[in-house]
């Protein structure tokens, strides 16, 4: 079964780059076949949350919900069970000074297992990759009142535009489908159930490549999660050198 690991970092923790380096963890997972893919995200200050309310697009700075440990990246892993996924997660270096949130992927929704690895190469030289976290309120209606847009319209349009680069839906977070792995004082601590008791839960994600944030906002606002809850847009950390902001 597939699991999504949300790597949560405590901003007050000050690990050295070596302590936080997941290279060995990735290598272990690549050897055993547990690690499928992973991406590092830009900091939460670079996040934008999009909601659609009463036909109006509402744009807000920052993540959809602020927790002490913020999401710094994510991985998709293959494991026999939730506990096996959590066991691998607890060996992630960030488990020692943050937490690894484990969520079961809803495989019924997924593409076939032989789907190619996510290719984030933009179609245009100016395209940028974004992670869109689809956040829903569990009991939100399936269709917006008075709407005749089919629920698959978003996927079809984005497929046509060539902007989507992989997606997973997640099972609702419960005792059997979600856990948080931490290591404190050298000992693994495993908590079953949702990471936090909040109404809005991450229900899945899409990786998209868009020209800029305005296009990403437009894509997010069209997704059903925009009115069922919210869509959090997180720029992916890009390896190319970028001029860093200076004071």
């Amino acid at each position: 079964m597939k699991y999504m690991l949300l790597v949560r970092v405590d901003p007050e923790a000050r690990p050295t780059p070596e302590e936080a380096d997941p290279a060995a963890w990735h290598a272990e997972g690549a050897r055993t076949g547990a690690w499928l893919e992973g991406h590092r995200l830009r900091e939460p200050a670079d996040a934008t949350t999009v909601r659609l309310r009463d036909g109006k697009v509402l744009i807000a700075d920052g993540p959809f919900a602020e927790f002490k440990e913020h999401i710094a990246g994510f991985d998709i892993v293959e494991a026999a069970s939730l506990d096996a996924a959590a066991d691998y997660a607890s060996r992630h270096p960030v488990a020692r000074f943050g937490a690894i949130e484990v969520r079961e992927v809803w495989e019924d929704f997924d593409e076939p297992a032989e789907a190619p690895a996510t290719d984030l190469t933009p179609h245009t030289p100016t395209g940028r990759p974004y992670l869109m976290m689809m956040v829903s309120v569990p009991d939100a209606p399936a269709v917006p009142p008075g709407s005749d847009v089919p629920p698959t319209a978003w996927n079809e349009e984005m497929e046509r535009r060539g902007v989507t680069r992989g997606a997973h839906r997640l099972r609702p977070a419960g005792e059997a489908t979600a856990a948080s792995a931490r290591v404190r004082g050298g000992r693994p601590l495993l908590t079953h159930g949702p990471y936090a008791e909040v109404t809005e839960q991450v229900g899945g994600y899409d990786l998209v490549v868009a020209a800029d944030l305005d296009e990403a906002i437009e894509i997010a606002a069209k997704h059903p999660s925009a009115w069922r809850g919210a869509v959090e847009i997180r720029p992916l950390w890009q390896p190319e050198p970028q001029p860093e902001p200076r004071p």
């Binding site: 200050a45 670079d46 934008t48 868009a210 944030l213 990403a216 720029p235 970028q242 001029p243």
Partner: peptide, 12 residues
């Protein structure tokens, strides 16, 4: 932070 967001998040 604001200039960083413009650059990282791709604010056009």
């Amino acid at each position: 932070r604001a200039r960083g967001k413009i650059s990282h998040a791709g604010i056009p």
